[in-house]
Structures are given as C-alpha cells and as structure tokens.
C-alpha cells in the first residue's frame, strides 16, 4: 500500500514561501495498491492527481466531511470533465439534505461556474455513516467522529496493512479532555491497531485552550489518542495555516521531548509518500 500525502494543511491553503516545506495545500491523501486508487478528501491537494499516471475507468473520492478545505479541489478535478469516466463520491450521510444537494451548494454559481449536473463524467454518490463497505480490493470501515457537522473517519484495509484517516477530529472535546476508556473514545474502533493513523494535530496545547469546540486537536492530544488506540505510527497533520515552517520545526522540537514513550510519530509533509507492506 502506498500513501501519498497530497495536502496536509488545515483550514485554508497558504501561499507564502514560509510554509512550503510542510506544504501549502489542503486535505487530500491518495492510497494506491495493486493499481487501485482511493482519494481521501478533495482539498486543494487533489491537484497532485494530475501528476500521477492513472487511467482506470473508475475513480473513488471519499470525503470525511464537506468543509471547504476538504472539497475545494473538486471543481478542478480533471476526471470530472472526461466523458465516460466513472467518478464515485462517498461522503457522510445526514438526516436532511442529500450528499449531492450539499455538494452542489459549492459546485454551482455564484461560487463555481460549472453546475454539478453539467459535468460530462458519470457521477455516483454514496452516503455513508457508521458503515463497512468495499471499493475494489480495499475494505473500508467508516465511523462518525467528533467534529462540527457530520464527519466520518475511514479505516482502509488493504492486502496487509491498515491506514486510518481522521484529518479533522477533536476526541478531547469536553471539560476534562479525553475519557481514557476505549468505549468512550470517538473513532476508537476504526483507529485501533492501525499501521498508520493520519490525524488532526492543528494546534499546540496552549493554542487549543482558546479553540475548544472548533473541531481540531492539539498535537499532544493527537499523540495521546494514538497511544490509547495502540496505533503503530501516527502522522500528525492538518497544520494550522498560521504556522510557518520555522514555527512547526520549533513546535515539534519541543514535542519530541514530551512524546517520549508514546506512539511513534511523523509530521506530515505534502508530497511525501509512505510505503506499507
């Protein structure tokens, strides 16, 4: 299984040179195995799709939720404009509007010139919540997780490895933070024992104090979460757009000291590729 990090920036795309090392583009990760591809979220990082050689008749995009930084790239996704191309979009179910209706709020004027209905590709929508399903050879489990608005995390099982994706997640939301009992931990079942957990780590713990309820995690909470879920590695991502490369380097120098004994971690960088067996 190959995991390509196409966009690891949180909230909105940056453009200044000071953020280029960790990356400017918003949430998008590609999972490739046996020539089959899954695209997780469609932030501006989906532009990396154009640089890969992929010509399958079917492409699948799995959306964790519909906040702008996770769907911004949809309008510029080249397979949308290829007749006969099958595009499957999977996203969280709600009890009110359909996934198609919610997405068309962005993919229609005045926000976007092309209507969803006018796209030449064959578009399919799949609404999911707490579910288990298969896409090609991938087995996928989705669970609602804590983040404002309907949001799901994904556990992707390939031939030999498990990759869990939760770019926006605030499991510590509450008066006393995370409840350290697996039954009371958001997303525990999809994160448990994952080979790699891709997780929200937008803030330092000091910043988090003023941003509780915004739907994101502190780096420390993300590490604690990974440890409670016994994941083998955690990829810390969804970097705050206000954090420059220098600031992130300094923040993670400090984290290195306090994370002693916790799960092995890496800081997500746009463009990085990770190979799993």
């Amino acid at each position: 299984m190959k995991i390509k990090l196409c966009g690891v920036r949180g909230s909105f795309q940056t453009s200044d040179a000071e953020t280029k090392t960790f990356g400017t583009r918003t949430s998008c990760t590609m999972v490739v195995e046996d020539g089959e591809l899954l695209i997780l979220d469609a932030g501006s990082g989906i532009q990396h799709f154009n640089s890969i050689n992929f010509s399958a008749k079917r492409v699948d995009i799995l959306l964790t939720h519909l906040h702008m930084d996770h769907i911004l790239g949809l309008g510029f996704f080249s397979p949308f404009f290829i007749p006969e191309q099958e595009v499957h979009i999977w996203g969280p179910k709600t009890s009110s509007q359909s996934l198609r209706t919610r997405l068309s709020r962005y993919l229609s004027p005045p926000l976007f010139p092309v209507l969803l209905r006018d796209l030449p590709c064959n578009l399919f929508f799949h609404e999911i919540g707490n579910a288990e399903f298969e896409i090609n050879h991938f087995k996928i489990k989705s669970n609602y997780i804590i983040h404002p608005g309907p949001t799901i995390g994904f556990r992707v099982t390939g031939n030999h490895s498990v990759f869990t994706y939760m770019p926006d997640h605030e499991p510590a939301l509450g008066r006393n933070g995370m409840i350290r009992n697996p039954k009371w931990i958001s997303g525990f079942d999809i994160a448990l024992n994952a080979d790699i957990l891709y997780h929200d780590a937008q803030y330092t713990s000091e910043e988090y104090q003023g941003k509780k309820g915004w739907g994101h995690s502190s780096i420390e909470d993300a590490l604690q979460y990974a440890s409670l879920c016994k994941v083998k590695n955690i990829l810390l991502a969804h970097h705050d757009p206000a954090h420059s490369d220098d600031q992130l380097e300094k923040i993670y120098l400090n984290i290195k000291v306090i994370s002693e004994g916790l799960t092995h971690y890496e800081v997500a960088k746009e463009g990085n590729e990770i190979d799993l067996p």
Partner: peptide
C-alpha cells in the same frame, strides 16, 4: 465491546 457513538460520548461530556 465497540465504542459508543459520538452522540452518546458527547452527551456524557456535556
């Protein structure tokens, strides 16, 4: 036993 749904977890946190 699987984890509770987030609606239950958030109810407890509240």
């Amino acid at each position: 036993m699987p984890a509770y749904g987030i609606e239950i977890i958030l109810s407890r946190q509240l």
